[in-house]
Amino acid sequence: MDSLFGNFDLSAFASALLLGISIGSIWLIAALGLTIIYGTAGVINMAHGEFLMLGAYSSYMLQAYFGVPFFLCIPASFVIVGLVGLIMERGLIRYLYNRPLDTLLATWGVSLVLMQGVRLIFGSDPKYIAVPQMFQESVEIGFFSISLFRIVVLLITALLVAMIWYLFYRTRFGMQVRAVTQNKEMAAAFGINSGRVYMMTFALGAGLAGVAGSLFGVLNIVLPTMGTSYVVQAFLVVVVGGGSLVGSVAAGAGTGELQSIFAYFTSDTFARFLLFVLIVILLRYKPQGLFAITKARR
């Protein structure tokens, strides 16, 4: 704690600010799929962490058994986890849309099954995903040094956000999604198949988790329990952002930056505690989050 006011180091502080952007991008990419699923269907998907984990394992599997190059594993993970999400939505979630608390519990049951299933198939020892040598190196930007892979994560996050924005605000499908989000019955009256919209967005959200998972598999080791460490942060990003895309981007960047700044003054864990307390206070004044989606009260 004695670093609180003493020996303030400007360049170290600037590094902390840059690191915050990287942390924010990691939390944001973890939260993207969750945002879409929650924002559209109002489903709290507790299995999201396990979707991340499945993404990491599908990349690992493709790489270790079929020799697929890493950057092809990412889209492949999108497809594989997206299919898992599709099956889950058709088989379980669609029966629970009017019971939000029950979707939370049912998806927790799914997460238990997925975690144990993966443990039975792959074992509980850690796996590693290999990336080309050049991405394991660090780059120096003046006084600041960051691993190249973190920059890749940042770029992929930016790319995904741009693609989602385009999909939701510039395509016919996106307009249907927004219509269903705002008023399901009215949208249905205009001939939009809301069941199909929910199904597609759930699969899309799951697929995005798959992409994030295959990146996390490189940042960290691949374990059956790896999802749980990301999922709470991802949920906080969604809660703070209010479930909209712009909200999640703002919340991801903001919380990541604050985490890094607090961590600079105190320690990593205490920073997390401080951040959580701050979010509780924020919710006191903005219970719907920063950028809430307007929904018809039913």
């Binding site: 629970l96 049912a106 238990l112 099954v113 975690m115």
Partner: peptide, 14 residues
């Protein structure tokens, strides 16, 4: 065991 518990829980919720 966790598979059974998770599956049973999904069944109960549904």
């Amino acid at each position: 065991w966790l598979l059974i518990l998770g599956g049973f829980f999904i069944f109960v919720v549904r």
